[in-house]
Design a protein around this nucleic acid. Structure first.
Lengths: 365, 365
DNA sequence: TTGTATGCGTTATCAC
DNA sequence: GTGATAACGCATACAA
């Protein structure tokens, strides 16, 4: 029988005493880290078992300066994309004995700086990060100064840091091309937290780039507030102001679905009156009555790759720069040609309309 | 300017040397933990700043036996419900200086036992857990033996352990009552990972209980495999075998949406041919073309409550047993009365059909 | 093969 | 006010 529930934590010293040997011997036996006689092995193992001993990771970390812990920072676990990525990191790590210390910034640049500092103080051996502003973070510099291995998730390559990501720019270009091929001209890009997401910005840039290349007018940029994103009625009002818009690219699938709700609220139909394409490729999208057209990504794979890169870095491997992970355009019933009367853009209205005025209007309304 | 990037980690000893004082004084200044002269304060603070010093949490933990870390275990962060809960824990903790060490079990009872052990070894000061089998876990016993504060999430009360949860049994009863009120008779409960989820089992029990109380025949219990849950075609086949079924209660919203897809695949309609109610209350559900009827819960609130309880426990507060968090039945267009011909259940077919044969059939087909 | 002693970074005790 | 010094739990160099 395993022994009592000593509310005293038992240390290797207790084991040594019980096995009647020195702590060095006990350590060597339990770690199989040196020569030991069969007899002491037996005694130590028995003592450890009876005492229910297990090593203190803290003592170990202090002595070896290896915490066996890696830190992970994401904006929020409430976003399933990040949550899945962290799960991926977790899975890749679990086989290696590393533990995951997590933090979330709530999309606040100050907070993610502070979080990194805390993680560093805890002695993490590496960091997997998705940040608000990776370009210029004091905490990040601190990590680099200490030579702590770093691995980014979702960010496009910055500063020579390894990053597991999909090519947001290219993916967005693909969407623009699909729009153009179907005859759309007046498009818009819908974003939430545009300023705190380089990913979103890169998608917008790529979208603009390909629109231009395809001869389309620039897309309207619509930056949603939290409230607008969560209130279909507000979204509907907003859409009402975009006269002649036939296709919208939402920076994530949740927004894409919210847009459809807003469209219905206005008595219109997707895709007849407005085509919608999302981003991320969440599973639910394909189960919908009108399956969502979207860019499929694999957040868990991103997490796994980031973790693997970090492990390589920790082991001193000079890991070659990983290419972006593949994305896939998923066709869906939310994307179709515009009504014929909109194919020729000769209505004289200017496009894109001013986004600023839109927001102002909304706040005044 | 802050000083160089010494790839040597700098300790309080370095600060003391630079400030030309003993480490005790440096410690007192930096921790404001004792009397210090204005002069030494100045010198120490300056030295610390110039060196870019910050305390090693590991050294601190070893000496004070307070790791300022709490451990968290959930089945998987890929499930948004758990992810949101962890985010809630995170938020409640972030204000307190505690860090979160996370682990996930992938719905494997062995794994979650092992994970708890690892967390314990890391010296966590408390544990927030959602387990596969909380009733009898060796690791859990180990935690209790060590007097490590414990706080459960989602589980119904067990063994006197504090748990943040909604009353699954009652919530499920409410669904049954809604079905009965509308005239449904032949119902089913759809579950994924039934055996590893006490929550799911409690919902089923409550559902059965209220069906009986309302004079309905027992619901059919349908346990889905992973493959069935993710393949609408398989689900459709399965549904085809449930003759006369008019209402289905899915143990989560994702399944509820998948069921609708399957129904459409069979050329039928929700809710005309089959009413569907989900569980969890994910946001997307209300944005759908046919808004999902479901039980709304607040996973983030569950996480926050669990964290708060744990903090109280750590501080020795004898926290009174928290009542279950409220749930809310969200009406939706997926729930309606059955077709008239099904209201009187005089078709002679036995209900519920054997679930076992269903599964067997499926595997043979 | 084994045990003693040292140090990892902190804090706390206790003399000064 | 201040500064040695002893823990904390562990691994290891070194002496035996």
């Amino acid at each position: 029988m395993t022994h009592v529930s000593s509310r005293q934590k038992i240390t290797i010293k207790d084991v040594a005493r019980k096995a009647d040997c020195g702590i060095a011997t006990a350590s060597r036996v339990l770690n199989r880290s040196g020569p030991t006689s069969a007899e002491s092995r037996r005694r130590v193992e028995e003592a450890a078992r009876e005492l229910g001993f297990s090593f203190s990771a803290i003592g170990r970390a202090l002595q070896s300066s290896r915490s066996m812990t890696i830190g992970c920072l994401v904006p929020s676990l409430a976003n399933p994309v990040f949550a899945e990525a962290v799960q991926g990191v977790q899975e890749a790590l679990s086989k290696t004995g590393y533990q995951l210390l997590i933090a979330s910034s709530n999309y606040d640049g100050e907070a993610d700086c502070a979080a990194i500092s805390t993680l560093l103080d805890k002695g993490v051996e590496g960091l997997v990060l998705t940040m608000v502003a990776p370009e210029r973070s004091a905490a990040l510099d601190r990590a680099r100064a200490r030579d702590i291995p770093l691995s980014l998730m979702f960010h496009d390559p910055i500063d020579g840091l390894p990053t597991a990501h999909v090519d947001n720019f290219e993916a967005a270009r693909e969407v623009a091309r699909r729009f153009a091929d179907l005859g759309h001209r007046r498009t818009a890009f819908l974003a939430l937290r545009f300023s705190s997401s380089d990913r979103s910005r890169n998608r917008y840039t790529g979208f603009c780039d390909a629109c231009r290349a395809c001869g389309l007018p620039d897309p309207a940029l619509i930056e949603l507030s939290e409230a607008e994103a969560n209130t279909p009625e507000l979204l509907a009002t907003l859409l009402g102001k975009l006269d002649g818009l036939t296709a919208i690219f939402a920076s994530n699938d949740f927004l894409a679905i919210a847009v459809q709700k807003a469209v219905r609220l206005r008595g219109k139909k997707v895709p007849q009156d407005l085509s919608v394409v999302g981003f991320d490729g969440i599973e639910i999208g394909r189960l919908l009555d009108v399956p969502l057209a979207t860019i499929e990504t694999a957040p868990d794979a991103i997490g796994r790759q980031a973790a693997q890169t970090l492990l390589d870095l920790i082991q001193g491997k000079d890991c070659a720069k990983q290419p972006p992970l593949p994305f896939n355009f998923r066709a869906g019933a939310t994307l179709a040609p515009p009504r014929p009367e909109f194919r020729d853009d000769d209505q004289g209205a200017t496009w894109p309309p001013s986004v600023h005025s839109l927001e102002t209007d909304l706040k005044q309304g």
